[in-house]
Nucleic acid binder design. Structure first.
Lengths: 228, 228
DNA sequence: CGCACTTTTGAGCGGAATCAATATCTGTGG
DNA sequence: CCACAGATATTGATTCCGCTCAAAAGTGCG
């Protein structure tokens, strides 16, 4: 994991497009940027571990990061998968000083890395601009996470995969198609499945007109998926 | 569900002890209280439904409220169980205008009921005091919810029940005991289990020295549970 | 072209849901 | 105080979903 303080244009653009900063005024965003450094991660790089003293929170500029927990026997379960624009660890700004999960790059990834203490201190005297942005970011994360629990508890593997496909085709008419932007094993983790179960789910969906070629997924009949 | 605008002393005390208000200065708390009315709920009263236009968020003063989703066939899955001091629906203050889940009293419950628009408008000119409180509340909820996903995905029914027991005995030495403050069916939902599965889990734990008499749970050997 | 990694397929197993029946608890009124 | 009804909890039998392990097939990169 190599770090640099240099801001080039591409980074700046990605930084601005982040969910955390997108609704911020310029002044606040600039102040926030003062707290940030950047990190390039390679697949499987560990960003931080559960139990570590928390020093930074992160925004994903490109690539993917998986947040996960480990059981006593070493089995891993993904809690959240963060893609471009997502932030993680920001729940620690207003409370908490150790990370509650592991974070690992699931791909080549570029991260903005915010110093928690610096952000805390500017958040004290900014009329609540940072607090509002964080509250808004956390709202989104909370909704997403609650959605995930409901999905886990209510739906089978096939239904979860169908839901995922539908989310990725929003606005498209049948026959639709899209390209997975990450590995299937990561998707499996995100959906709370073993890779084998994801594979079998895709196999079941073939009967309903879902064709998978590598990372390309084609859907003949979206309504068939909605009916599941 | 009957409402009243009258603030008596007990309500006021419970209101102040809420997670949302506990770290607030007096001025902010008073401003917030201006946005609140109170509601007494009877078991099974529906507070709001998924898809409803969101007009209020809530704090639980006493009793329990379950937040849940329904599948297309009508099966229900609990997302979160809120007890005294917890708030729900507060993720809607900074974004979102429809409830994303159902809320139902799981017991006789007293709720503080905050007008979303009023809170939004005072949150614009309070130097971020409200935003900080909400961010802090959402942080806690997010951590709890992530914990829940990890627990669901990593642990079996028996392990989840053991974890729950240990959480409720913190600080106690073996032999410990405590009283469930709500029905077992609610606990089952909270842990993502069918009531039958909870029952069987308790039965398995009997071998490890866990004795259940009605709502009283006695634990002979806490370490035996930790080892699971 | 070959090696490493990812994905798929197959077989077997185990955990929890479901359905159904019984037991226990709670509160109410006789 | 007891009897009874309705709700809650337990127990049993069965089914099904998804995990595990193992092996084969596919993919991509040097």
């Amino acid at each position: 994991m190599n770090r640099t303080l240099l801001l080039n244009e591409r980074k700046k653009t990605l930084f601005v497009e982040t969910k955390l900063t997108s609704s911020m005024d310029m002044a606040t965003m600039n102040r926030l940027m003062e707290c940030a450094t950047f990190a390039n991660c390679y697949p499987r790089d560990v960003v931080f571990c559960e139990g570590d003293r928390a020093t930074h929170f992160y925004s994903v500029l490109s690539g993917y990061v998986r947040l996960y927990r480990q059981s006593s026997e070493g089995r891993e379960a993904d809690i959240r998968v963060c893609g471009p624009g997502d932030s993680f660890g920001d729940e620690l700004i207003f409370g908490g000083d150790t990370y509650e999960y592991h974070a690992q790059a699931a791909d080549k990834a570029m991260l903005a890395r915010y110093d928690l203490n610096k952000v805390r201190s500017i958040a004290e005297n900014d009329n609540g601009m940072i607090a509002r942005a964080i509250a808004s970011s956390l709202s989104g994360q909370l909704e997403e996470t609650m959605e995930c629990i409901a999905n886990d508890r209510l739906n089978t593997a096939v239904q979860r995969v169908a839901n995922f496909i539908l989310e990725n085709c929003e606005g498209q008419d049948a026959p639709a198609s899209f390209r997975l932007s990450f590995q299937k094993s990561l998707l499996a983790g995100k959906l709370g499945l073993a890779p084998e179960a994801l594979s079998r789910a895709f196999a079941s969906l073939k009967e309903l007109g879902v064709n998978v070629h590598g990372r390309i997924i084609e859907i003949e009949d979206m309504d068939a998926l909605r009916r599941l």
